[in-house]
């Protein structure tokens, strides 16, 4: 079964004084993968046709803009139509717990996946908080453990906006016990990695027709590598597994690899940026 989604991403930045030079980078375009394809997309900016794209080192699309001339407002509007396939249920194909551990603990696995095995500055658990980590035992099944960890994080934190920001680390969150989707995800990654699991940060969109938390802007969740199943998505914010309503944009070690907007500018004074995200499923 497949489904179609319409996505709209809007970003508006306002500057106190005219900006002389700027360079923007957006990672907001749904990626092409097994269960997902981009049917069409359209980009408009307030500064004219200065748009170009490139792929980042992990292969995801970056939309880049170097506006010509001075501006005081910068507006980007990205719209896309995405086709999603229902994921096949392959949960039963995984090997025994022992074999799972042997695979993810091998040298070759480490060499291929070190990026997602190492902790990054955003995904470190301080020594004094180790007791709050859900321990992975080599006799446990990875899917079961991941689901437990998902619930563990979900129960540990309460969802609250504007108490954290993009620089908040897992170490901050474990003390604060609240945050938004990226904080849930960072803490998930930090605990999984401290147990020697390979896992990555995913940014994307979530169907606004659902009853999920975190549909107001772009969403974040985690993927864990499970032998026999491959990379499998878990959303600790909503305590569920990723399904057809999750539209993936990019993955990386943590938020810094997937940040939807980055910019470098020559300007003075204050600036403000607003975002708007709309995701709706097309009725067949």
């Amino acid at each position: 079964m497949s489904a179609y989604f319409d996505i709209l991403y809007q970003s508006i930045s306002e500057y106190e004084y005219p900006v002389k030079e700027a360079f923007f980078e957006f990672i907001i375009s749904p990626c092409e993968c097994d269960s997902q394809s981009l049917v069409e997309f359209n980009i408009k900016t307030s500064t004219g046709p200065d748009v170009f794209t490139t792929k980042n080192s992990l292969g995801f699309n970056q939309i880049r803009i170097r506006p010509a001339g001075y501006f005081k407002t910068f507006k980007l509007e990205y719209s896309a139509k995405v086709r999603k396939e229902e994921l096949n249920n392959i949960d039963n194909l995984r090997p025994s717990a022992h074999e799972q551990w042997a695979e993810i603990n091998s040298t070759n696995f480490y060499i291929e996946n070190f990026l997602y095995l190492h902790t990054s500055p955003l995904t470190v658990i301080p020594k004094e908080n180790q007791n709050e980590v859900l321990i992975y035992r080599r006799s446990s099944d990875l899917l079961e453990y991941s689901l437990e960890l998902n619930t563990h994080i979900h129960n540990l934190l309460s969802y609250e906006k504007e108490v954290t920001d993009v620089s908040t680390t897992a170490a901050d969150v474990i003390l604060l016990k609240k945050g938004v989707c990226q904080d849930y995800t960072h803490l998930f990654l930090a605990m999984a990695r401290s147990n020697g699991l390979a896992c990555r940060y995913v940014s994307g969109y979530l169907d606004q027709g659902s009853s999920y938390t975190g549909t107001g802007g772009m969403h974040a969740w985690a993927e864990v590598y499970i032998p026999g199943m491959g990379w499998t998505g878990f959303d600790p914010t909503n305590n569920c597994r990723v399904n057809i309503q999750y539209i993936k944009v990019a993955h990386g070690r943590d938020y810094n690899d997937c940040s939807p907007i980055k910019g470098v500018l020559l300007s003075l004074g204050e600036n403000k940026t607003y975002h708007l995200v709309q995701v709706s499923q097309q009725q067949q």
Partner: peptide, 16 residues
Amino acid sequence: LCFRPDSVLGVPGLMG
């Protein structure tokens, strides 16, 4: 954009 975001010695977008 790729490495130290506070660098003013480099060129934004160069790595791309």
